[in-house]
Amino acid sequence: MSAIHHPGEDLLWDYFRGALAPGLRLSVSTHLDLCPQCRDDLRVFTAIGGALLETTEGVAMSDNALDLALARIERPVDLPEVSDAPAPARRPAFLEGFELPPSLQSAEIRGRYFVAPGVWMAPIALPGEPRAAKTYLMCVKAGMEMPEHTHRGREITVMLQGQYRDHKGLYQRGDFTQCDEADDRHMPVMMGDVDCLCLVAQEAAIIPKTWLGWLLKPIARI
């Protein structure tokens, strides 16, 4: 099943040039694992970048630039061995049976905790993530409805299993949705008969709009 909701070109461009915070970058990378269309778009950016380099005029170098470069090459440096791709992380037992995309297979997914009956969350540890940001997996039992809320920053969700609906449409495996700040209210409703698993990246804490949401907020830690 192909994704029908995708990140905007501006977000893909920021991903391409390495300008996204760790949680947002992981979200886009996970969507790319599942979306051939966006992988093709990324190849276009690569082609454009290569063409720009070919047409860019050279810059004059200092007289001792070559000597400095050779000195750095000859300087002994102890570098750790690195592989072309991150090694798969140990998968927590509670994720058995879920099909995780490659970007998440190497992520450090920590222990889950239950927010309510039928709802659990598992934080993802990301080096360099801003203090206010949160990145996590969330699993919600089929048929449940999440409390309405708004946002203090961007909230990105990538669907990994199941489907849900909100005011923007229906989301299934591979779909990517972005909600922005306080004027973007939503109340996801889980559809179908399969439990939903999604990757969520928040730039800041959510703002509940119901009394139940406020009660659950300290437990959810988002």
Score class of each variant (00 low, 15 high):
120 W>Y: 09
97 G>M: 07
41 D>N: 12
59 V>I: 15
111 G>R: 14
109 I>H: 04
37 Q>S: 10
89 A>H: 00
14 D>Y: 03
109 I>K: 02
110 R>Y: 03
106 S>N: 11
39 R>P: 05
95 L>Q: 04
2 S>I: 08
116 A>M: 04
37 Q>D: 12
60 A>E: 15
32 L>M: 11
20 L>M: 03
7 P>T: 07
115 V>A: 05
16 F>D: 01
36 P>W: 08
3 A>L: 04
58 G>I: 06
116 A>I: 00
97 G>F: 05
29 S>D: 14
52 L>K: 05
84 D>C: 01
46 T>D: 15
66 L>A: 11
34 L>I: 07
28 V>D: 02
104 L>W: 04
105 Q>L: 15
117 P>T: 10
69 A>E: 09
105 Q>C: 15
94 F>V: 09
35 C>E: 01
113 Y>C: 03
109 I>V: 15
89 A>S: 12
7 P>F: 13
5 H>T: 07
77 V>M: 08
118 G>N: 07
114 F>C: 03
50 G>N: 15
28 V>Y: 05
39 R>T: 11
83 S>Y: 10
23 G>T: 01
111 G>C: 05
50 G>W: 07
86 P>N: 11
46 T>Y: 07
60 A>G: 05
92 P>M: 10
111 G>W: 03
31 H>D: 03
37 Q>F: 13
65 A>P: 00
58 G>Q: 12
75 R>P: 00
110 R>L: 12
8 G>H: 11
42 L>S: 08
21 A>T: 13
53 L>D: 13
102 P>S: 09
49 G>D: 15
73 I>A: 09
81 E>V: 12
33 D>K: 09
46 T>I: 00
43 R>H: 11
27 S>M: 05
87 A>E: 13
76 P>L: 07
38 C>Q: 08
80 P>F: 10
25 R>L: 06
12 L>H: 06
59 V>N: 02
59 V>G: 00
107 A>P: 08
104 L>S: 01
56 T>S: 13
51 A>R: 13
